[in-house]
Nucleic acid binder design. Structure first.
Lengths: 349, 349
DNA sequence: TCGCGCTATGTTAACGCTAACAGGTCAGAA
DNA sequence: TTCTGACCTGTTAGCGTTAACATAGCGCGA
C-alpha cells in the first residue's frame, strides 16, 4: 500500500486479467491472493501482489459482489446530519463496523417520509447486508420493502411502537415522563414547553406526550408553548425564551425539546439576571457534550446515542456472520437524567 | 410507490426474470420500462409497472452497473463528522446532487493518512463516477490511485498546494494572514494562539503559518501558545484560555483555531469580567452558525463550507454529464472576515 | 404490389468477478 | 510400486443486468 503504482496507459480500466497476465497465473489465483482465500503458495502470492501493486490494480467490487452475491455494505438511513445526534450515532456504528468487513453507507431523509422511501429504495437496490434506519414510523411502501428485503433491519432511536425486525433505542415517552416527574418532584408547577415545529419528528412528539401525560396525572398541564423552525438553535432558544416569558411571566420551568435551544434559553436567563434554577428551572434533551463549557450546566437527559449506534451495528454484524442466528432483537436503553445546575433537587418551595 | 407490494414467498431475491414472467414480456422490455429508456407502448409499460409493484421488485444496481459500467455514486472522503464543518460541506454537496442521478457515499478518515488510503481504496473499488476528497495532502499511494482512477477528482477545502485534478476551497494561508492583519490593524500587539494538537490538520497548520508570517512582517511573533486534543471543545476553550492567561497575563489577543474553543474562551473572559475586546480581543475560525446565540459575537472568518460543497458537486455533476468537458477546475473562494464584538475596529491604543 | 421506414419487442453477448469443481504434483504410507 | 491425500492451480459456468443488434408488424407512398 505504500509503493507508488506505475500506470503506463491510463485508458482501459484494469481487470483481474491484466494482473493475471502480468504475473503469469490464472485470474482465479489472482482473485484468491487478493482476497486471502484458499491456499496459494508464498511464491505465487508474492508475484501476484507485486504485479497488482505495480499496475495499481483496484478490484471491482461491483463484479465481485455480483458473482458472490455478498455485499459488504450496511445502509444507514437517518433524518439529518446537521444536529449532533446522528453523527454521534454514526460514530457508534463505525466503531463496531470498523472491526468487520462491513461498511456503512449513509442516506439522509430530512425528516420527509417520501424522501425516506426514495432513499431506502435506492439503498436496497445495492443489496446491502443490512439496514439501520431511524424511527419506527415509515410509509407503508417503505415497511413493505423492509419486510421483503430478506436482510437484517434494525430500527433505531425509538422503542415506542412495533418494529419490523430488530430495534435499539430508548422509550421517548418514558423519557418525557421521567423528566416531568423530576420537574414535579422539584416542586415546579407552571411549566412551559419549547420545541421545534416538526410534526414529523415522532420522537420529539412522543417525549412531549409522555411529558404531558405525567403532568396530567398531577393535575397539571403545560402552561405555555413556543415553537421554532430553522435558523441557529442557540439564537432561537434565546428568542423563544424571551417570547414565552414575556407572554407568560409566571412560568417557573421551561422544558426544551433539545439541548441547543435549552442552552440558548439558559444564556438568555443568565443575561436577564433570572435566578436559575430558583426562579425558573430549565431542562433540555440529549446530553450534548460540547455544552459542557457553558457557565451553568443544563439539566438534560442522555439519549444514549453512541450506544444505540454500537448496538445496532452489533446486531447487523453478528447476523452477517451467522445468518440463521438471532432475529427480532429488542434493546431498550435507559436514558439517564442529569440534573445539571438548572433543575433543583427536591427543594421544598 | 404508495401501493403495498405483495410478497408471496420471501426466499429467492426477485430478478427481472420474475417481473418479466409476471407481465408476459421479455426481461429487456421490463428493463426498458423501469429505466424509462427506449420506446415501449403504453399498454406494455402499464403491465410491467403493475407487475413490478405487485411483486415488490427492487432493481439490482450491482448487476446494472456491471452491465452498463456506469455507477451513479460519488465518493466523498472527509476527515470527520463530529464537528459542524463537514456536515455543512455535505449539505452543499447533497443540495446539488439531489437534482441529478448521482448519490454521495461518505467515508471518514479521522485525519489519519492510512485510513484515508484504505477508505479511498474501498471507495474506488465501487467504481464511483467521481471523488470529492478533503485536502491536498495524501499519501503517495493515495495520489497514485486518484491519478489513475480515470474519474473526476475534486480536492476540497484548501487551495494552498497543487491539485491532482480539480480543487475547490479557500487559501488557509491567506485566511491566516488576513486575520493577522485585522488584529494588527486593530492595534493588538501581544498575541496568543490556541489550537488543536493535530499535526495532520494541514489546513489549521497553514492558517497558523499565514498568521505568523504576517506577524513576522510586523516584527512580531506569537507570544504564547496552547493546544488541546479531545473532549468538549467549549470546555477546553475555557480551560486553555484560563491557562494561557495565567501563564502570560499581558496577552492582549487570543486567536483560536476554531470557533468552538473560541466560544469557550469568550465565555471564560465574560465570566472573569475581562473587557472584551478592550483588554483582550478574541477571534476564531469558521463562522459556525449556531454560535449566533452567544452573549457576544465572536470575531471569525467564514470558511465558505456550504459553497465549497456546492461547487465541488457541480464539477462532478457537469463532468458526469459531458465527460470530455472541463478538467483541472480551480475554484478559490474568498473567506469573509466577521469582526463580531470581540475584535475592535481600528481603534487607536 | 413492393419495399421503405417507423415503432415495439426480442435475442445475444458481454460486464468482471467468484463458487464449485476438476485436475496435477509430490510426499509419505501401504 | 502404487495409492492416498494434502496442497496448489486451473476450468467452467454463472451472478442480474444492459448495449447492440436483430426482427416482427404495420402504414404508406410510388
Amino acid at each position: 500500500m505504500t509503493q507508488v503504482p506505475i500506470q503506463p496507459l491510463p485508458k482501459r480500466p484494469l481487470t483481474l486479467r491484466d494482473v493475471s497476465e502480468a504475473s503469469g497465473v490464472s485470474e482465479m489465483t489472482v482473485s484468491r491472493v487478493l482476497r486471502n482465500r484458499g491456499d496459494v503458495s508464498d511464491a505465487t502470492r508474492e508475484k501476484v501482489l507485486t504485479a497488482a501493486r505495480e499496475l495499481g490494480y483496484v478490484p471491482n467490487k461491483i463484479a465481485g459482489s455480483l458473482a458472490s452475491s455478498r455485499v459488504n455494505l450496511v445502509a444507514v438511513i437517518i433524518p439529518s446530519l446537521s444536529n449532533m445526534v446522528f453523527p454521534e450515532v454514526m460514530t457508534g456504528i463505525s466503531e463496531i463496523l470498523d472491526d468487520t468487513e462491513l461498511q456503512p453507507v449513509v442516506g439522509v431523509t430530512h425528516y420527509k417520509p417520501e424522501r425516506e422511501e426514495a432513499v431506502l429504495y435506492e439503498m436496497l437496490s445495492w443489496r446491502p447486508s443490512g439496514v439501520i434506519i431511524a424511527g419506527l414510523e415509515h410509509t407503508d411502501a417503505a415497511k413493505a420493502m423492509l419486510g421483503a428485503a430478506g436482510i437484517p433491519i434494525v430500527e433505531i432511536m425509538d422503542t415506542d411502537g412495533s418494529a419490523i425486525d430488530a430495534a435499539v433505542g430508548i422509550s421517548h415517552r418514558r423519557a418525557g415522563r421521567k423528566m416531568a416527574k423530576a420537574i414535579l418532584d422539584a416542586g415546579y408547577k407552571k411549566i412551559g414547553f419549547l420545541g421545534t415545529k416538526m410534526p414529523l419528528d415522532h420522537r420529539a412528539r412522543k417525549r412531549f406526550e409522555g411529558f404531558t401525560e405525567t403532568l396530567a396525572k398531577a393535575g397539571l398541564e403545560v402552561a405555555d408553548q413556543e415553537f421554532y423552525s430553522g435558523g441557529s438553535a442557540l439564537a432561537k432558544g434565546r428568542e423563544m425564551t424571551e417570547t414565552i416569558l414575556a407572554r407568560t411571566p409566571d412560568l417557573d420551568f421551561l422544558y426544551y425539546s433539545n439541548d441547543m435551544i435549552g442552552a440558548g434559553g439558559l444564556l438568555h436567563c443568565l443575561d436577564k439576571g433570572i435566578d436559575v434554577p430558583g426562579e425558573v428551572g430549565l431542562a433540555g434533551f440529549n446530553g450534548i457534550e460540547f455544552l459542557d463549557g457553558l457557565p451553568r450546566q443544563l439539566a438534560t437527559m442522555d439519549a444514549c446515542r453512541v450506544e444505540i449506534g454500537r448496538e445496532a451495528a452489533r446486531i447487523i454484524a453478528s447476523r452477517a456472520e451467522s445468518p440463521e442466528t438471532g432475529g427480532k432483537e429488542l434493546i431498550s436503553l435507559e436514558p439517564s437524567l442529569d440534573f445539571g445546575d438548572t433543575l433543583k433537587r427536591l427543594k421544598k418551595l
